[in-house]
């Protein structure tokens, strides 16, 4: 992935959510109207396809979440409106999963930000072997998550694993806190390069002249970093944080392979999978999916509205 594509996706995703200043309405000429109609017609097929493949499933799961719908008891299907939400929101299993997910998200994203920034600075400043440095640091991100998770699991399994051997052959994946630490470690190892990539795009925005001028004025390296680099990079940092938070919140594959949710390590996605796919309870499972959707939407809202996340380089992005 190059900088350009990262920035592009960032722009298209995020500017759409930005408040658009109301424009003055002018009477449109006939030609303009026809042009606009043609525009609608041309984008209609794409828009309809989008609605069919994303809008309908979302609507369908909302409908399912308001029904008692269990494939095991097909004859007991009925509309129960918000009973499923009451059931899920009053379940200790759900709240355990929420806290596990929040904990994993906050810890891993925080560590990834620090490590990712360090990695980005190294990649940005590397004088020799820039290509090699960048390629090697991206390797973990290039490995399929499930494959990486399996290698972590074997590494931590007493008897077969090198990490387990090296650290006293305790079965760490069999207890809640150590297991969560391993999951977090695997997650950080895996996605720090992604964080670094996004941050590096931000570093490219910092003008060298500015840094040189500050150095002339006697600013230390730390002061230059905090007072100049970070403020200019802020949009890129926020975008990176937003992306990673949304991703981390939906953690599934690492957990599925490493603990499969045992010892109270279920994340919200894991719990949803257990109810929806294993338990065949479409009602409860869909309710959980809708709740995850709402939480993810809330995270995005907080980032965009309160922190003013915008794509790096977009109009009001760099302003403080």
């Amino acid at each position: 992935m190059s900088h350009a594509t990262t920035e592009d996706t960032g722009t298209s995703d995020l500017t759409a959510a930005q408040p658009v200043a109301p424009k003055k309405k002018a009477a449109l000429s006939e030609g303009k109207k026809a042009e606009r109609r043609l525009g609608w017609l041309l984008c209609a097929p794409a828009a309809l396809t989008m609605i069919a493949v994303t809008g309908w499933p979302i609507l369908y799961s909302i409908l399912l979440s308001m029904q008692r719908f269990d494939l095991k008891f097909p004859d007991r299907t009925e509309w129960i409106w918000f009973d499923n939400y009451v059931t899920v929101l009053s379940s200790p299993y759900w709240w355990d999963a929420v806290w596990v997910t929040v904990l994993l998200t906050v810890v891993t994203v925080a560590v990834e930000l620090v490590l990712g920034m360090a990695l980005a600075l190294i990649m940005h400043r590397a004088l020799v072997g820039r290509g090699i440095v960048r390629t090697t640091s991206l390797i973990p991100y290039g490995i399929v998550t499930v494959v990486a998770a399996f290698s972590w699991r074997f590494a931590w399994t007493p008897g077969t694993g090198y990490l387990s051997e090296a650290l006293g052959s305790e079965p760490v994946l069999t207890e809640k806190i150590p297991a969560l630490m391993v999951v977090g470690l695997a997650e950080i190892w895996k996605t720090t390069p992604f964080m670094a990539l996004l941050l590096m795009a931000g570093l490219a925005l910092v003008p060298d002249d500015l840094l040189k001028a500050a150095a002339m004025d006697g600013a230390s390296a730390w002061q230059r970093f905090i007072k100049i680099t970070v403020p200019i990079m802020k949009p890129a940092i926020l975008v990176a944080l937003l992306f990673r938070t949304l991703d981390a919140f939906r953690i599934f594959d690492n957990l599925f392979v490493l603990t499969a949710g045992s010892q109270g390590t279920s994340s919200v996605s894991m719990l949803t999978y257990n109810n929806l796919i294993k338990g065949l309870n479409l009602g409860i499972g869909s309710t959980m999916s809708v709740l995850i959707f709402l939480m993810v939407a809330l995270i995005a809202f907080v980032f965009i509205k309160l922190f003013g996340t915008a794509a790096p380089g977009s109009d009001d992005g760099g302003k403080r």
Binding site: R68, F73, T87, Y93, G261, L271, G283, I284
Partner: peptide, 12 residues
């Protein structure tokens, strides 16, 4: 167990 039988509760 009763909740599970009635497909009411949340599965852990």
């Amino acid at each position: 167990l009763q909740n599970a039988l009635d497909s009411k509760g949340v599965l852990p």
